[in-house]
Design a protein around this nucleic acid. Structure first.
Lengths: 324, 324
DNA sequence: TTGTAGGCGTTATCAT
DNA sequence: ATGATAACGCCTACAA
């Protein structure tokens, strides 16, 4: 059997209270008692039961992270940064990859309501659960508008779109195509598209956005992207809404015998460390993952301590110039 | 205040026991009572407190995952696969990125001993904690020999090394260099190196392994790799012990004006989905991430139920032929 | 400086 | 078919 406080108490000839005090460094203790208690704990190989403590304290020191999937480098790196910071604040991290499954999302949200976690950092759509009143719940959203009551942390997607488009125009490109996901409500990439289209028009250019559905298989996506080059032989540049698509476009361009940047200018989006390592030449809009993580943690802490927060935090993006 | 069982009981004019029974579908209940209780739960917006339940059940249904960092695509994808499977088995996942910090590793191991988690899947070195007796603890290691008592799941690193080297030799290369991390005790990449060196010798070729320290900065690494081309102008092929290094080598070769595969053959290692997407042409040894995850979960379940397990599970790797 | 007793919210045993 | 009660292991008023 696992020893409990009581067992330690008996062996040290003191009460449970005293052992608890030794354990938590509270109140007055004689040095002798302290030594005896530690001795007993060691002999019994005692480990306090965290769950019992959590029940009493009504806190778990656990924060739930809910993202589509940490297999995606953006969410993987973000989760790692969040975990690091939360750990330093005394929290551990419970992770959920929703895979866009509303049932799973609801289940993880439920963790919060069941007091399994003290707070939640959410980066999914949570389609079905909007009706819940989150007003005083310690929840923070990243790049998603869940609900008016939930503060949102996001990088400046509109500015990113402007930055990318302006850069391409400055490089002399006129025929610039943008690839983006389907127009979903309030998705962050939607603002990148908007910025692209606005910027193009402001420069008297015609925006052309090619839609890539999120869930289409690799080969179909490649097919659609390849088609772009045939449909637009005078194409000068592409602004892709994420680096994975940019990588694929790079690939296709090379296969078609095009040289970057001579025959095609290319700008991606996200700028994760992984991609920066693997494709150091790719010009891309870099999201400030560390700042996002830090802000999310700060805001969550504010919510946990009933301090007021802004309802929105917009962080600046930057252009990383590669050779594409 | 959060309502508890007792509040629901009062409102429904029944006892706590009855409410608990309704909640857990146990024993005999009249339909009328069931309805009344559900009604009361709804009115009070009742959510059971998981922690209290955990205390009684002495189980948390939480599994800890301990890896260097999920920001690395291999661990990110592996963690995602593990989470998916554990979730389907009714577990949630607590994640720790040890960042090779022994203190943090020890802390997360402690979660297990404090009953915060029911089991642990570990992919870190856990240097300082070997002395602990894990004999009956539900711990599974991935690619790491922690301790004789802990079952290890790993892909066949030696076979992977043979596969890569043999492939390069079959393609006609004779001067083949291998890049690998420092020789640490029992690291999985060590067996890749061993296989490379054995295979080279078996074919009458001289193995040359270039050591890349794990923590050196990007530019220094690039420097070392670039140097290889100058030191070995007759170089025909490189077998890199991971895809990130392979990507960098690819990069350098292109910068030096070399064409792959004409001027250089290149094989990487890991074959994560991310890399397969971004560098579809890279020839690489693919680790069976899904099978590793499934095996780890199966073995952990066995340990949790006191069923016997093997002490080692070796899963097959495969060669993905690209154009490098 | 140390101990007693009650509570954290749930579940299960044993009655009724 | 339902209820009273004790337990899970810890922590803290309050008392001594």
């Amino acid at each position: 059997m696992r020893p409990k406080l009581e067992d330690v108490a008996k062996r040290a000839n003191v009460s449970k209270t005293t052992v608890s005090r030794v354990l938590n460094n509270r109140g007055y203790l004689s040095q002798e008692t302290i030594t005896r208690v530690y001795q007993a704990m060691k002999e019994l190989n005692y480990q306090p039961n965290i769950v019992a403590r959590q029940l009493y304290q009504k806190k778990t020191q656990l924060i739930g992270l809910l993202f589509p999937t940490i297999a995606n480098p953006f969410f993987g790196e973000l989760s790692a940064e969040l975990e690091k910071r939360l750990y330093n604040e005394g929290f551990k991290v419970l992770i959920g990859n929703s895979m866009n499954d509303p049932k799973k999302e609801a289940d993880y949200l439920n963790q919060l309501l069941s007091k399994q976690v003290d707070g939640l950092i959410v980066g999914t759509h949570n389609q079905g659960i909007k009706e819940y009143n989150y007003e005083h719940l310690p929840v923070v959203a990243i790049d998603r508008n869940m609900n008016q009551d939930i503060p949102v942390i996001e990088s400046d997607n509109y500015a990113g779109g402007v930055l990318a488009t302006t850069y391409l125009i400055e490089q002399g490109a006129k025929k610039i195509i943008h690839t983006n996901g389907p127009i979903t409500l309030d998705s962050p990439t939607k603002r990148r598209r908007l910025a692209y289209e606005d910027t193009m028009r402001q420069h008297g250019l015609t925006p052309i956005t090619v839609t890539l559905d999120f869930n289409i298989p690799y080969h179909e996506k490649k097919q659609i992207l390849t088609q772009i080059f045939y449909d637009h032989p005078d194409l000068e540049a592409i602004f892709a809404s994420n680096d994975i698509d940019a990588a694929l476009i790079m690939q296709i361009a090379l296969e078609l015998g095009k040289k970057l940047p001579a025959d095609l200018l290319l700008v991606g989006y996200d700028g994760t460390k992984v991609i920066q390592n693997i494709l150091p030449n790719l010009t891309t809009i870099v999201q400030p993952i560390e700042a996002i993580a830090q802000t999310a943690v700060d805001v969550l802490k504010a919510r946990l301590n009933d301090r007021p927060t802004e309802s929105e935090y917009v962080l600046p993006v930057s252009l990383k110039k590669g050779t594409t």
